[in-house]
Computed example of a mutant assay.
Amino acid sequence: MGTTHQAWLNPLRGAYLESGLTLSELSVRVRLAKSKLSEMLRGMGLYPRWEIVLSLAAELKLPDWPLYRLWRQAALEEARKSREWVERSGEKTLTAAPGIPPLDLAAFRELVEEHYWFYASCFLDDLRCQTAVDDTFDILWLRWNEALASPDTRRFAWSIVRTTVMSRTPHHDCRPSLGGAVFDTAALRSRTTPADRLRQLTESLELFAAISRLPDNQLDVIVLRYLCGMSDRAASALLGLPLASVHSDERHASRYLEGLINPASAEGDTA
């Protein structure tokens, strides 16, 4: 089961566990064999048709539009279903309008969407970047009550956008690749001769490879601060982390990068 499949199944499974219904009771309500329902909720067996997912969503009071978008995407990308299969599965049950998300979620999206896009663009091309951001807000829509009940909605949301972006990012030695962002750096654009650009590109590739090896929190802080150009306070607000934590992550990351890129200078500072 891939990440896009999990993106819609996990909220569905969570809603079932919170509902208090037994598997037998839910099976009767959606008119699906208990064994098949169990398989579906565990992500096993054949990829489910949309009308089955929709009937579960109705019983568990989940919004159908974000669920459909994520279900459709997983059907095409992970289950390798044809577009004809997808359309046939939903043609009798798909709502005509996308629906309206909760007002507070819409307001939250307006505040953070651009920042999420810039973060995603450091790892993904424009098309995959937009898909990752759209998926993030679909997942948030399905889990919005959970987000509001969490200690910090911003931190909860960041965990979703990060997971979604990283699931689509090429990895090397289990670390995310920042290679695509190298070609859009200000330092590279400022070089005028081919030789200067090649030299800067080599340096940028080395630096970005080093950044990719940072722990997750430090990586996010460095990307937001230096690739997205955010202030420390803005990064703190977006990540849902105390300003002191952002400063600490930035300090430790900078020392690590300096030691890796310029070991002689780092040894001198230590001495």
Rank of each mutant, 00 (worst) to 15 (best):
L76Y: 00
L23Q: 14
P98I: 06
G2L: 08
K81G: 15
R213D: 12
F156Y: 15
A181F: 03
A237T: 09
L9G: 09
D220H: 08
M40T: 12
G99A: 10
V246M: 06
E203N: 11
K92F: 11
E206D: 10
R128F: 06
L23I: 12
L26E: 05
N217Y: 04
P263N: 02
M40I: 15
S89R: 08
P98N: 08
A107R: 15
M166P: 00
E84W: 10
V246P: 09
G20L: 12
E51D: 13
H172Q: 10
R69P: 01
E87D: 11
A271C: 06
R31N: 15
A97K: 12
A271G: 08
G20M: 11
N262W: 00
D138P: 01
W85T: 04
L214P: 02
P102M: 09
A15P: 06
R31K: 14
S19T: 02
F156K: 06
L188Y: 03
S159T: 13
M44Q: 15
P48T: 04
Q218V: 07
V161S: 04
N262V: 04
P170C: 13
P151S: 08
F183G: 00
A7C: 00
S27I: 11
R143G: 03
Y116A: 03
K81N: 10
L188R: 13
R154T: 12
S204I: 01
D134F: 06
D269A: 15
D173Q: 15
S121D: 07
W158K: 02
P176H: 10
S89W: 13
L260I: 08
H115M: 09
S150L: 11
L124I: 12
C228N: 09
R29G: 01
Y68C: 07
S231V: 02
